[in-house]
Design a protein around this nucleic acid. Sequence first.
DNA 1: CAGTATCCGTTGCGATACTG
DNA 2: CAGTATCGCAACGGATACTG
Lengths: 124, 124
Amino acid sequence: MAKARHSRFDCSPGCAVEAAISLIDGKWKCVILFHLLSGTMRFNELRRAAGTVTQRMLTNQLRELEEDGLITRKVYAQVPPKVEYSLSELGHSMAPILKSLKDWGDANLDRFGRPEPIERLAAE
Amino acid sequence: MAKARHSRFDCSPGCAVEAAISLIDGKWKCVILFHLLSGTMRFNELRRAAGTVTQRMLTNQLRELEEDGLITRKVYAQVPPKVEYSLSELGHSMAPILKSLKDWGDANLDRFGRPEPIERLAAE
DNA sequence: CAGTATCCGTTGCGATACTG
DNA sequence: CAGTATCGCAACGGATACTG
């Protein structure tokens, strides 16, 4: 539990930056965090919100976020099971990062891989 | 050239966030970007600044950043070779992201994997 | 509902050696 | 100096099946 999963930082300048992203790397983590900014969510809610994440990966990422103390997992002892995820205080402190990521993304979405709409437009 | 390296975003909410980190994921990219905020740097300068990155990885990450239009590579036709890397305008636009990462890291460095000094303190 | 377990191909990435 | 080439292992991560 909480084994040193993150690579050791050798604290050169830029260390802080490296440390920060090491917590949110992995394709899904910041997406999860971002969604949790809006409030508590259940497992399958997150699953849908994240788009195409697999069950295994979502579980995995949630566990790591929990280990790192960014999110809180609350299990209700009932059937069917109910588990709620929410941001810890530390998690909330990342809001500025998430926000700047979102802002940049919004401003530049059309610049790189603009995802084309699923339906083919009139072409052909 | 610029093949679709990044996974396709299916533009659910949070898509922008996903898009943004997809450009800076990989342990070294944001460290590189961060250092380039201070100005132009040469290959081996970056190598030293980044800490423990290998030659292969640095080259690799630099190429991807270049493909994504975040940095500019300037080669001087001379011997010995001299190559300078600097942020493009798009790269500079990520400054807020880098800054928020740095701020968070600075504020929370002591909370997670605080890298212990190499020399063992008095213990034993 | 919210997971865990297993299989298995793909990618990441360090080590090492070579080059214009 | 600033790379490229090749090897090889380890981690990532999807698909699928099973469970309390």
